[in-house]
Nucleic acid binder design. Structure first.
Lengths: 190, 190
DNA sequence: GTCTATATTGCGATAGAC
DNA sequence: GTCTATCGCAATATAGAC
């Protein structure tokens, strides 16, 4: 792995653990085993390095989520697969947590990959809900975009509950509650 | 307002805007219009001041949420009132955002009021769901604790969606989706 | 109680040697 | 390309005058 790659990987880890304001160049360099000069040779500074790191994480997340959303099964099953896929719940969402960072939100450039990723997943889910409606799996009165927002929000909020309580249990409870509400068996189809 | 109060209020604002790692004593002092000496006279340091600020915010949030949850209406209406109460969505949740702060999560003392507050609201909601079930308003197969976790998670995640997109619309969409799924009219009661 | 002065450490970046 | 040295400034805290 090149020095540039090691810098990006270290930054990704630290952004996940500590966010943008909580991550210092020094910490990045120590973790990457590089000196100051390396970093400022490859990147103009902390914002540019963070942007590269965020973009890579966003790409990876799209691939991970996409694999489940495009996987086998009915629309409901694929939404369930998205909700229940393995996660390191107590570490939080490496993309979603960035929305709580004031400097990420203040920078359109840093916020963009975050927004794009979440929006991309939401659109996929909305499409799945509409597909499910065509198959009579979900109530026809539901709004696909709204249900998709609910699904993504439950995941993102699940991280909050889990980290508040120090246990992944609350995340799982929220997901089970949502799946119960979404369950094709629970509603009369008209 | 006393100097000590002004320090706490300034800290509350900054914790909301920037989180714990993003908030410096200097910024607090400037906002409070006080000098270093004042702060270190009233508090041992940043952690103790932050604890006082978080506790006050937690108390306020319990009062705000409690007023809606104990308000008038059926269980469904009160849950809807909680979900749709006025919020400064783009500012995020002053309590929930602290769960993304590494130093808050690392400190049991700082995390405690956060955990307590979220848990308190969740318990209230769970109770409301069970009440609604007794009245035949919600399907009897649902788990009150799980639905309550879903409700709180949707709110917390709604903030994430809104801040990612830079607009409160996504928060509202997620809430509307959840309300549609919860709606007594949408499900057959057995 | 509140102030200013000061100390120490780390942040974020630049310079220039190798 | 990578290193160390250095810079100017902010973070967090202490000391001691008033």
């Amino acid at each position: 792995m090149s020095t540039s790659d090691r810098l990006i990987e270290s930054t990704r880890e630290l952004l996940w653990e500590r966010g943008y304001v909580g991550t210092s160049p020094k910490a990045i360099l120590e973790r990457a085993g590089a000196g100051q000069g390396s970093m400022y040779h490859h990147f103009k500074g902390k914002p540019e390095l963070a942007l590269a790191a965020i973009r890579r994480t966003a790409e990876e997340m799209r691939a991970t989520a996409g694999a489940v959303l495009d996987g086998p099964g009915t629309p409901y099953e694929r939404i369930r697969a998205y909700l229940t896929r393995e996660r390191e719940v107590l570490r939080g969402c490496p993309i979603g947590r960035l929305t709580m960072d004031p400097e990420v939100i203040a920078s359109d450039e840093l916020r963009e990959p975050v927004d794009e990723t979440i929006d991309w997943i939401r659109e996929r889910l909305a499409h799945l809900v509409e597909e499910g409606q065509e198959q009579g799996q979900f109530a026809p009165g539901l709004d696909g975009e709204e249900i998709a927002a609910t699904v993504v929000a439950t995941v993102q909020g699940g991280y909050v509950l889990a980290r508040a309580s120090g246990s992944p249990a609350a995340f799982d409870a929220g997901v089970r509650g949502l799946l119960a509400l979404l369950s094709p068996q629970s509603c009369s189809q008209s």
